[in-house]
Simulated assay, not measured.
Amino acid sequence: MLVSRWLHLNLPKVWRSRNGLARLLLPLSVFFASLLAIRQGLYRLGLFRNVRLPVPVVVVGNVVAGGAGKTPLTMAIVQHLVAQGWHPGVLSRGHGRPTQDTCAVQSSSTPAEVGDEPLLIHQKTGVPVWVGPKRADAGLALLQAHPETDILVCDDGLQHRALARDIEVCVMDERGIGNGWLMPAGPLRENWPRKVDLLLHTGQNDVGGGFQARRQLADWAVDGQGRRVALDSLRGQPVDALAGLARPEGFFNLLGDKGLSLHQTTPLPDHFDFAAWPKAALLRPLLCTEKDAAKLWQHQALALAVPLELTPEPAFWSALDRLMGALPKR
């Protein structure tokens, strides 16, 4: 556990440059590259096959390890599609849950059953969401349960080649591609550049092309009993914050941008389960992410979840609409 936490907190720092530790890991990256090449070759030869579903599929993902805004963008795309008259559903692997079954996300589901991100997507959008390690199986099950669905959005599926897709959307934050090396010497899950239909930057980086999105926190937070608290009311007093994200410092920085004085910050591994979290009285207001809230509120109902708002530039939506309009009829 200590080694895992050290890697979680320190590898992203290593990946910023081609330093000595990154170079020591290069032989493992060469091995990883060979595995990627073999896998891609098997798909090209048809020995591995991808499944094309009977409705269009939009895949949202990134090419680096760690969060870049995939889930917030997935929710934004779903809400845009609904406004355009589509009836979307969402597919996800369901990271962080102990089981590997294919199932629907219900209003009564827990993060342990379906994963924290799929539960958040369902709560925020209200559209059908199914999880499963094989996204094609989850898609077929969703379509059978909700035959009115006419498009599927796959959250974090860029490298899941078993699912055929019509549109690929890649998200990049301020890290860009880091030192440009494959894992574990660098952050890349696959080689870059690669062809994608849309590239969206949620932070300033050195990767050219694509569109920009503004990422900021809402002006309010909500506790486990549904009570809203304006962030302005927390200024001028010390507050604590925690985040179970791939890059928890991003959340802490956004809180600082809101003018809050952070007394103690607790970075936690992505999809942290909070099972052993103490139910002690709070010394100061405790802020968390929406993703963590459903798990944390079971132990600390007064914790304040702050929503993340992702706003792509209008040109991104225009480009997506053009791609949607060019999809073949099925």
Rank of each mutant, 00 (worst) to 15 (best):
V153C: 06
R97Q: 07
V3P: 02
A162P: 00
P88V: 02
A76M: 09
L24C: 14
P269Q: 12
R135P: 01
P278N: 12
G180M: 04
V78Y: 06
T74E: 08
G176E: 06
W181V: 00
P128Y: 08
L91N: 10
I167Q: 08
S318Q: 15
Q100R: 15
H201W: 12
R194L: 10
Q84P: 01
P314N: 09
H146W: 12
A280R: 15
S107N: 12
A37Y: 05
L21M: 12
V82Q: 15
W130K: 10
Q298I: 00
E290G: 07
A315I: 00
P54Y: 07
V30P: 00
G210T: 02
L2W: 10
I151N: 09
E309A: 07
K258P: 00
V78N: 09
A319W: 03
A303N: 13
H95Y: 15
R227M: 06
G85N: 10
C170P: 00
L254K: 09
I38V: 12
P72G: 04
G208V: 05
L42P: 01
W6Y: 14
L296T: 01
N205P: 03
V171M: 06
L260N: 09
V51F: 06
V57C: 02
Q84G: 02
W297M: 06
L163I: 02
Q216V: 00
A275L: 13
A218H: 13
F31A: 14
G178T: 01
T289Q: 11
A294C: 04
C288Y: 02
D137G: 02
H201E: 12
W86E: 11
L53R: 11
P56I: 01
R330P: 03
M75R: 14
V131Y: 09
G96R: 07
G69Q: 08
K329S: 13
K124E: 13
L327T: 01
Q40T: 01
K279S: 13
G226I: 00
D219N: 14
S108W: 11
G46A: 09
Q106M: 11
A141M: 11
E190N: 05
V129T: 02
S17G: 05
A136R: 10
R44A: 13
N62Y: 07
N62H: 07
L28A: 15
P184Y: 10
L286C: 03
L262W: 10
T149L: 08
G210S: 08
E148F: 03
E113T: 01
R227K: 14
P133V: 01
A164E: 13
L302D: 15
C103Y: 05
L245D: 01
V129F: 10
S261F: 05
L143D: 08
D219K: 11
K279M: 13
L245N: 06
L53K: 08
I177N: 04
P12A: 04
A275V: 02
G178M: 07
Q216Y: 12
A138W: 08
A76W: 05
A246W: 07
W130S: 06
R16P: 01
N191G: 04
D116Q: 12
F272S: 08
A145E: 10
S34Q: 14
V14W: 13
T202K: 09
G157M: 06
R44D: 08
T110Q: 13
R165N: 05
W6E: 06
D292Q: 08
C103D: 02
A243S: 12
G61E: 07
D137W: 04
T266D: 04
M324R: 15
L9G: 04
P193W: 06
A294G: 03
L287H: 11
G85L: 12
G178C: 05
